[in-house]
Amino acid sequence: MRIGTLGAARITPTALVKPARSIPGVDVVAVAARDRSRAERFAAKHRIPVVHRSYEALISDPSIDAIYNPLPNALHAAWTLRAIDAGKHVLCEKPFTSNADEATSVAEAARRSGLVVMEAFHYRYHPLMERALEIVHTELGEVRHVETWMCFPLPRFSDIRYSLELGGGALMDAGCYAVHCLRTLGPGEPSVVSAAALLRSPGVDRAMAADLRFPTGATGRINASMWSGGHLLKIAARVEGEYGTLHITNFAAPQYFHRLTTTVDGVRRRERVPGEATYTYQLRAFRTAVHDGTTPLTPPEDAIANMSVIDAIYQKAGLPLRGEL
């Protein structure tokens, strides 16, 4: 599978270039950026053989099988649709689109095309999450509450992640993980009860908290921040069930450090799940889906559900949906 990358984003070496070197049959063969000199420097540094003059030229390259889309959030839908129109499979960074309507449009295009379009929630492909789900489903009994945290400091306020026009905000950047993890661990698709934001600038949240409810009556809460909001740095998930609790430390990047702590009937157990980097599992899953026609864990339909929750949180917080300025 020959992959071309749109832009020279900071995440690309970690999410694509390095994993590709360890996966047989996956090659990063081309890059394009709006600044050609930047693309050339990126290509030279990461040994990418082809630099295209534009995103359009890269997508039109008949030798490329798939596109990696790490562009700013507001550009995800448009360029993923163009890649689909050109017959390319797409691995699109999260959040999948600016809002649920855009996600629905991309999902419909993907379905018509028969191509693999996958949202890059890399953590979902690590064995840690499979082990966590096993514990939830076999040890905790009926789930009563799920809470997730994706909080980290990003005081560089000129960063595009604080740009309303580019689809920024703490909920979009950090919170998309918190929402997705809550949905993964919870009993069904949640509805949003209430939400409150701390703002960096008009319409742009630097922190967001939201309370949710699952169809079973179980409750949920997400906590997301890029600056303060009560948790400067916390990446975790907690599931409370009728028989006990599960706490996951660092579900997002377990290759660096993580811990599962299970307490059932008063007995505490701690464990770790060995494995490769989350991005390696993700890229391997993308390759398998393309080669075998299997459905990945994070298909467009899942992205619609995730963006629907994000939209509802923004609405409850009294903030505009991204992409609807």
Rank of each mutant, 00 (worst) to 15 (best):
A20Y: 04
R21K: 11
R21G: 15
S22G: 15
I23V: 05
I23H: 01
I23D: 07
P24D: 14
P24W: 15
P24T: 11
G25M: 11
V26G: 00
V26M: 05
D27H: 14
D27K: 13
D27F: 12
V29Y: 04
V29N: 08
V29W: 10
A30R: 10
A30Q: 15
V31C: 02
V31D: 00
V31A: 00
V31S: 02
A32C: 06
R34C: 11
R34F: 13
R34M: 13
D35V: 09
D35R: 07
R36S: 12
S37Q: 15
S37K: 11
S37A: 15
R38H: 13
A39Y: 10
A39F: 01
E40N: 15
R41W: 05
F42D: 00
A44N: 09
K45A: 14
H46I: 07
H46N: 11
I48V: 13
I48Q: 04
I48C: 00
P49G: 13
P49W: 15
V50T: 10
V50Y: 07
V51M: 05
H52S: 12
S54H: 12
S54R: 14
Y55D: 00
Y55Q: 07
E56V: 10
E56W: 06
A57S: 03
L58Q: 02
L58E: 03
L58C: 05
I59Y: 02
I59G: 01
I59S: 02
S60D: 11
S60P: 08
S60E: 15
D61H: 07
D61L: 10
P62K: 00
S63F: 13
I64Y: 12
D65W: 03
D65V: 06
A66F: 11
A66N: 09
A66W: 04
I67W: 03
I67S: 04
Y68R: 10
Y68S: 12
Y68N: 12
P70L: 08
L71F: 08
P72A: 13
P72Y: 05
P72M: 12
N73W: 14
A74P: 05
A74T: 07
A74D: 03
A74G: 07
L75N: 08
L75Y: 13
H76G: 07
A77C: 03
A77K: 01
W79R: 12
T80I: 04
T80D: 02
L81A: 03
L81G: 06
A83D: 02
A83F: 05
I84V: 06
D85F: 14
A86I: 08
G87I: 01
K88C: 06
H89T: 03
H89I: 00
H89D: 09
V90M: 09
V90G: 02
L91K: 10
L91C: 06
L91T: 06
C92M: 11
E93T: 11
E93W: 10
E93A: 11
P95R: 10
